Simulated scan of single mutants.
Amino acid sequence: MDKRIYFLMIISFVIGMVELIIGGILDLIAEDFNVSIGQAGLLITVFALIFAIASPILLVMTAKVERKKLQLVCLYIFFSGCIVTVFAPTFTILFIGRIILALSGALLIILCLVMAPSLAGEQYKGRAIGIVSMGVSASLVLGVPIGLLLGNSFGWRAPFVLITVLTALSIIGVHLFMGRIEPKPQIPLKQQLSAFKNHKITLGLTTTFLYITGHTIMYAYFKPYLEVTTDFNANWISIIYLIFGIAAVFGGGIGGVLADKLGSRKTMVIALIIFSALFFVFPYSTDFLPVYFIIIIVWGILSWAISPAMQIYLIEIAPESSEIQQSLNNSALHLGVAVGSIIGAGIVDTLSVKVNPFAGGILITLSLITVNISVKSKKKTSYKTKSAI
């Protein structure tokens, strides 16, 4: 397989880190700019919201641009967003930096996913997409512990200095190693949105949105939750985040294996039952550390184990338009991150961070209801895939 595919995986990891890396340093940012934890959490919200909405739109708008050229343009814009973030003198400037990073990062991730199959042979296309996707998932779950370690040691700007350096190296790498890749015909946005006419697909996407929203309500504010409910110091909190991240990375593989053995439907239902129960039990386990750590590990595994099962499920529903479903599922995931961080911020600022796991559990329980309705409803194909124009 073309080694440049692994380079695309590295780029996707660097870009993906920016989204949630800020979750572990919200308190440091809030203190520096004299804002509340909830207000600082909006930095996660704006990024995820733009990411969810912009990626399919920008992909259509740039459908005719040569891929290496487009990737370099996006990387330079992303680099400028890193510079704005690192040197932001006010919270408003930092917010603008997040918008720049989100707009360029949204297209960069999709570009990596699109370019990978073009570099792989026909027999390796699926594996190529999987390798790039692994970079994205790893960045989302490892970004927070990396940010936490660097932020506590050198200040909240340090993680973004690292990302700035890695982005600069990525730009050099694209210049040196990536050849021209001509664009392929893209699926029109109108046709992508027509997938919502299929109720099973709509309910599946709603499931992704709900469980990620519930997960984010807790995960985006996990550090302040630990600080309020436990006596763990900064080092122990970093270790907990690292344990969670490793568990989450393995969760994607475990979810794929379970989906193959048990079927996508059964895997999703079982995983969501355990997932929702964990959030309601979590607040009562802080006095029993072995149980507490087991719950954190299982939570980490389940947070990404559901995703491959859902992807397989969406492909099974309408294999002729599977690429559309994958794109929309990605948007639903990031929209869930955005909404979850908003809800979590509201709870933290108006009630207490101790309420977050219960709110998250309610959303995940709702996702269990939607996935059951989707699985049990009759298959309805209300649209046909048209040739891309």
Rank of each mutant, 00 (worst) to 15 (best):
F177E: 08
I187R: 08
I172M: 10
H175P: 01
L302N: 08
W236D: 13
L203D: 09
I217V: 15
N235Q: 14
I172L: 14
D287A: 12
V257I: 15
L278D: 11
I274V: 14
L242E: 06
T216V: 13
D231K: 09
F288A: 06
I270V: 12
T206M: 11
G255K: 06
D231S: 14
G256V: 04
L166P: 01
I296M: 07
I201P: 09
N198W: 00
S264I: 00
M178E: 02
E227L: 11
I240S: 11
K200C: 06
D231Y: 06
K190N: 12
V249N: 06
V165H: 00
V257A: 14
L210E: 01
R265C: 00
R265D: 05
I294M: 13
T286E: 05
G263D: 08
Y225R: 03
N235V: 09
W299H: 06
Q186M: 12
F288N: 09
S170F: 04
Q191F: 03
K223Y: 06
S276N: 10
F275E: 07
S264R: 06
F209W: 01
K190Y: 08
V165M: 02
Y219I: 04
I163V: 15
G255W: 04
R180P: 00
L193I: 13
K266R: 15
L166C: 08
F250C: 09
N198Y: 01
I240G: 07
T286K: 06
L176C: 09
F209H: 03
I181G: 09
G204C: 10
L272M: 11
Q191W: 03
I273C: 09
I270H: 01
N233P: 02
S303A: 13
L242F: 15
Y292K: 05
K266E: 00
Y225W: 11
T216Q: 10
P183V: 10
V161G: 03
Q186F: 12
L169G: 01
M268D: 01
L226K: 08
I294R: 01
S303V: 06
W236G: 07
I237C: 05
E182R: 02
G253S: 11
M178C: 02
L272W: 00
T206D: 01
T208W: 04
L193C: 08
S276P: 03
N235S: 11
W299V: 05
I270C: 02
T230A: 08
N233T: 03
E182A: 14
T230W: 05
P183L: 10
T267V: 01
F279R: 07
L258H: 08
T286Q: 10
K197S: 07
V281H: 08
A259C: 07
V228C: 07
F209A: 05
A168M: 08
G263T: 03
G214P: 12
T202K: 04
K266C: 00
N233E: 07
M178W: 00
I254S: 12
S285E: 04
W299A: 05
V174L: 02
W304P: 12
R265I: 00
F196N: 05
P283F: 14
V269R: 00
K197N: 14
I212D: 15
V174G: 02
